[in-house]
Computed example of a mutant assay.
Amino acid sequence: MSSANYTPFQNEGDGNTMQRSAVNAVEHGKPMQRSAVYALEQPALPPYTDVVVTDPTPPIIIRHHTVIPKDYFGLALFVTLCCFLPLGIVALIKSNDVRVRAAHGDQLGAQQASQHAQTFSMIGLGIGVASWAISLVVLIIYIAAVVVAVNEMDVTPQPILENIN
Rank of each mutant, 00 (worst) to 15 (best):
F84W: 15
S95V: 05
Q42P: 01
V137D: 01
R63F: 02
D106F: 05
Q118D: 03
A133S: 14
V67T: 08
V129M: 13
D71A: 10
L85T: 02
L108F: 13
P86H: 14
F84D: 15
N96V: 04
G124H: 10
I61W: 03
I60M: 02
L125N: 08
A133N: 11
L136P: 02
I93H: 12
H104D: 14
I93G: 08
A113V: 07
S131G: 09
T54R: 09
H65F: 14
I127F: 08
G74T: 06
A133V: 15
I93V: 07
P43Q: 11
V79C: 05
L81W: 07
F120Y: 10
Q112Y: 07
R101L: 01
R99G: 12
R99M: 12
V137C: 05
I93S: 12
M122R: 08
N96E: 06
P69Y: 13
F84V: 00
H64M: 06
L45H: 08
R63M: 03
S114I: 06
V138P: 07
P43N: 09
M122N: 15
V52D: 15
S121K: 05
A133P: 10
G128P: 03
V98Y: 04
A103W: 12
I140V: 10
P47L: 09
D71F: 07
L75G: 09
L139G: 00
A76Y: 13
I89C: 12
Y72N: 09
I68C: 08
V138R: 15
V52M: 12
Y48K: 07
A113Q: 03
A103P: 07
S135M: 07
H116M: 11
V98A: 02
L81T: 00
A117E: 08
P59K: 09
G126K: 13
H104C: 15
L87P: 01
D106L: 03
G124D: 14
V129Y: 12
Q112F: 02
G126A: 15
S131Q: 13
I140P: 02
L75D: 08
R99I: 12
D97L: 15
G124N: 11
G105T: 13
I141D: 04
I140F: 09
H65K: 11
T54P: 01
I60C: 00
D97W: 14
L85Q: 05
P56M: 06
G74C: 04
A130H: 03
H104M: 14
G74F: 11
I123K: 01
V51I: 13
V52N: 14
Y48E: 09
V98E: 03
A91G: 08
M122A: 05
F120S: 01
F84I: 00
